[in-house]
Amino acid sequence: MQMRVSDEDRERTAQQLQHAFSEGRLNQLELEDRLEIALTAKTYGDLLGLVTDLPAEHAPPVPEVVELDSKNGNIKRSGDWSVPRRMRVTSKYGSVELDLSEAVIAHSVVEIELALDYGSAKIILPEGASVNVDAFRSDWGRTATSEVPGRPRPGHLSVVVSGKTKYGGLTVRYPRKRWFTH
């Protein structure tokens, strides 16, 4: 994650490292090395690298809002990643693919705001999730295509997509079924 961290984020990670030391998960030298890095960290990626081998409760919190921005490249998130409560995704010429099917999602509602000029977006949701795409607009491309129910379902993730694209579109679906033969 390239988002810059605050002093509070650094301090929180330092406390998590000290807690891991008190539990016997880190020795004195490991604690000192990691604390030095934590207190000088610039991005969330720097902090995450310090706690990836510790139990999840020692990981730095996911920021409330994450902004992803690309002028020419594609934006893609997939696999095991932490989804924030709100995402703002801006892409001038590239496409966007957000695969939430294997992600860690701590919120019952996730808001995704898309600002696309010449690209399209694909959002893959975990089974059972719902999506509201009513606030997404396309000037010249196709409008939002969703294979996912639009009405929120109790106990399941609900995603709200807003924003617009000038020449692209939006597709929302569940993961494709994989058929294996033996």
Rank of each mutant, 00 (worst) to 15 (best):
G119M: 04
G163N: 09
P154Y: 06
E97Q: 13
R178P: 00
L100C: 07
I105R: 12
P149D: 12
Y118F: 13
F136W: 15
V109W: 00
E127F: 09
A115F: 02
D139G: 05
D99K: 14
G119H: 06
V159R: 02
V172S: 09
V96W: 00
P126S: 11
G155A: 12
G169C: 03
K122Y: 02
K122P: 01
A103V: 04
T145K: 15
D139N: 13
E111C: 00
P149K: 07
V159N: 05
P152I: 08
D117C: 03
V160Y: 03
L125W: 11
D139V: 14
R178I: 14
Y167I: 01
V160K: 10
K177W: 11
A103T: 08
E97D: 09
V148F: 12
L157D: 09
P175K: 13
G168W: 01
R137T: 12
G141Y: 09
G128C: 10
K122C: 03
T143G: 15
T145M: 12
K122L: 15
G168S: 10
D139I: 12
P154H: 11
A144P: 08
I123S: 01
L100P: 03
V131I: 10
A144M: 05
G150D: 11
H107R: 11
K177E: 15
R153N: 07
E102S: 14
A103E: 04
P154M: 10
R176Q: 15
H156G: 01
L170N: 01
E113I: 02
K166V: 12
S101I: 07
A129T: 11
E127D: 12
V133A: 07
